[in-house]
């Protein structure tokens, strides 16, 4: 295995994973030491926002890689995506536990009544097959289909941002910032693709 300035790839990956788990440690710290008035709000907010941030970082890897030519960045992409999914899973778990009381009826009612729940649920449903297939075996097995499947990243990122946007009362700039970043990253991809096609056509 190749060694970089920060050791082998597996060491680098371990470092990335540990950094990404810090918000979860922070959540545990808040639960134990601060005993928040509304544990659900804290749990849902930290897991949800971390999931969204990691999702956006995952989406940003390809444009950053092509912009900087830093090829090695790509090796973290699947780890980051799976970590984002882990936070989304925690997010859904806290919702099902503390908000829905594990009641399917509550979930169904909420999905029908509250559009931000529908948007979040849609994002989570799209995320699941991507997380499940984020391994070398699936990449080999699915071949070209894998790339197609993972284009779900684009709608799912937008759905996740809209989920957040519709949740807040409209007073918070945060969700708009996330949506703007996602749209910029998607635009970067479209522009990149058009350029590649243009140069391919000239060649």
């Amino acid at each position: 295995m190749k060694s970089g300035p920060l050791g082998s790839i597996s060491v680098q990956k371990a470092i990335v994973i540990i950094i990404c788990l810090l918000p979860l440690v922070n959540l545990a710290r808040i639960f134990v030491f601060e005993q928040p008035a509304d544990p659900y709000e804290v749990a849902a907010h930290i897991t949800g926002e971390t999931a969204l941030r990691l999702l956006i970082i995952t989406l940003a890897i390809t444009p950053i890689r092509s912009l900087t030519g830093w090829k090695r960045l790509g090796i973290f992409r699947r780890n980051l995506g799976v970590l984002s999914f882990c936070y989304a899973l925690c997010h859904v778990f806290f919702y099902m536990w503390l908000e829905a009381g594990f009641s399917p009826a509550y979930l169904i009612d909420d999905l029908a009544e509250r559009r931000y729940i529908s948007a979040g649920f849609a994002a989570f449903v799209m995320m699941t097959p991507l997380a499940v297939t984020s391994n070398n075996f699936s990449v080999r097995k699915l071949g070209a289909l894998w790339r197609k499947l993972h284009r779900l990243m684009y709608p799912l990122c937008i759905a996740a941002c809209i989920h957040y946007l519709w949740l807040v009362r409209g007073e918070d700039a945060g969700p708009f910032v996330y949506l703007a970043i996602v749209l910029a990253l998607l635009a970067a991809r479209v522009i990149g693709r058009m350029r590649r096609q243009g140069s391919a056509a000239r060649a």
Binding site: A37, D38, P39, Y40, L98, G101, Y106, D109, D110, E113, R114, R115, Y116, W166, L167, R169
Partner: peptide, 22 residues
């Protein structure tokens, strides 16, 4: 009368802890 973002059928009692029902 549900609010677009919050079901008004139930409420979380602040301070009742993790395992309390709504």
């Amino acid at each position: 009368r549900d609010h677009p973002r919050w079901s008004q059928k139930e409420e979380r009692a602040i301070g009742s802890g993790f395992f309390a029902d709504k």
